[in-house]
Every structure is written in structure tokens, then in C-alpha cells.
Amino acid sequence: MKKIYPNKAVCIGCHLCEVACVTAHSKSKDIILAHNVEKAQEGLAPRRNVAQEGPVCVALSCRHCEEPMCVAACISGALTKNPETGRCEYNEEQCVGCWSCLMACPFGSIRRHPVKEKIIKCDLCAGRDMPACVEACPNAGLIYEDRGKD
């Protein structure tokens, strides 16, 4: 399956991927409304987050694991592995906010929704051909491609 591969050798830590993520997951899909209006009203937050240690940065989000620990831990059925697409999918309706997946994912890819008792997690931009973060990255710090299984 196609996945997003982050490259720490060239990620410059600009956080534009986060900006794109928030915009793509907003209602308006408008960068300014998403950040200046919706964020305050509905608690939009990026599903991809940039980690930095000294000069090294990398933008991380769900790696859509072959054997996802989050799915194993999810008590409500909100997280499932789609056997056809390979994506690790999240259904917000089902989530009860028990944070089991947040605890279980050893990659720290799951976050709490800023206002709801729900999680947020990368969905590889369901409905888009190219994930927003990959498209926004100015330095090819994120590559979306199929590299075989995991």
C-alpha cells in the first residue's frame, strides 16, 4: 500500500505539513478560516506533528502498521485495519475516549482531540489523491509511495 515516509535527513521543521493537515481536515478547507475560526470553535489540531531534537526534525503521524497496536487496544471498534486498503481507519462516532490506543501505539501517533473526548489520527487524507502534508512539504521531507508491505 501507499504510505507516507518521513525523511529526517531533509525535514526542515517548518511545520507546513501541520498547517496543511489542519486545513485539509477543516470544514471550510480554507486555510485562514480553518486556523482563525474553526480551530477556536471546534478544536482542530494536526494529525501529523513535527518532532525536533537539536537540529534534527521529522514530521510524524500514523504509519498505518501492518499489525497495529492501536487496533488491538481499541475497545470500541473505532479503530480498524481495512483489509483491502491496508489503512488503519478511525471512526470518530464509535470512539469513547478511553485513550487505550493512545497508550498502546508505540509510535505516539495518536493524540487527544483538543476539545472532544475523542482521539485524532492520520487518515492518509481519505478522499484526496495526495495527502495534504505531502503536497505541502517544500523539501520532500515526506514521500508518499508504495514500498511493499510494511
Binding site: 535527513a9 531533509v10 525535514c11 526542515i12 521543521g13 537539536g54 537540529p55 534534527v56 523539501n139 520532500a140 521531507g141
Partner: peptide, 13 residues
């Protein structure tokens, strides 16, 4: 040569 700045040049690009 500051590593934080130098990587702004991705050699591929």
C-alpha cells in the same frame, strides 16, 4: 554549515 539550516537544501531537489 549549520545542520539545522543546511538541510534546507535537499540535494535531490
Amino acid at each position: 554549515n549549520d545542520p539545522y539550516l543546511a538541510k534546507r537544501q535537499n540535494p535531490d531537489i
